[in-house]
Design a protein around this nucleic acid. Structure first.
Lengths: 99, 99
DNA sequence: CTCATGATTCGATGTTTATAAAATTATAAA
DNA sequence: TTTATAATTTTATAAACATCGAATCATGAG
């Protein structure tokens, strides 16, 4: 993976609110918001102390870093984690560690 | 690990130059700058197109996030990766992935 | 069609950040 | 002790960022 892309991923996870958002979306697959492992902006927003425009902005950054994907379902936007990318990054970090 | 600490780590890795710096320090253990798996600021600086003050600032951020440790040896500052933290982070990323 | 609601865009604002130039400190060598 | 070199601190600046309120867009319900 290219350094710029890697940095972009880390940047997307570098804001505490956005990171928590991301983790929430990840967890949604298990203790689900809607039993399908998905998570709407309204769901997310109700867990945080930040406004809808900010949530929207954060979501966009996560999508932009390819960490999640979204899908419009009716009025709602459904977010899912891109599990492959996350584990790629984990592997890269692991590589720097072959002590 | 606490969300804020996690975010801090990611922030420290979110700048392309700083990330590359960090990776360079990691690699130094193998294809070494000084055969002891260490890496001085001068070594680093000579690989990048950024000035000494900037390198110094980046190093400080990496130390601050606990990703590296430093040790002054004579005129030189020697940097080493904190491998434990790195693998903790990798594990955390992995965790979001238990599909 | 109208309305309510979920989400996005726009505009503004205060904060953080990356970077460099200049000045300063620390240390080893001559 | 003087000098050269490595690194840090200080100061300044331009760019990026997080956040919000207001306006807007999109969609499903009545």
């Amino acid at each position: 993976m290219d350094i710029k892309q890697m940095a972009k991923i880390f940047k997307a996870l570098s804001n505490p609110n956005r990171l928590e958002l991301y983790l929430k979306i990840s967890e949604a697959r298990e203790a689900s918001f809607n039993a399908c492992g998905e998570c709407s902006i309204a769901d997310i927003k109700s867990c945080f102390n930040i406004g809808a425009p900010t949530v929207s902005h954060h979501i966009k950054e996560l999508v932009n870093a390819n960490l999640i994907t979204t899908e419009k379902r009716g009025k709602f936007l459904i977010c899912k984690v891109n599990t492959q990318l996350t584990s790629e990054v984990a592997d890269l970090l692991r590589l720097t560690n072959n002590s």
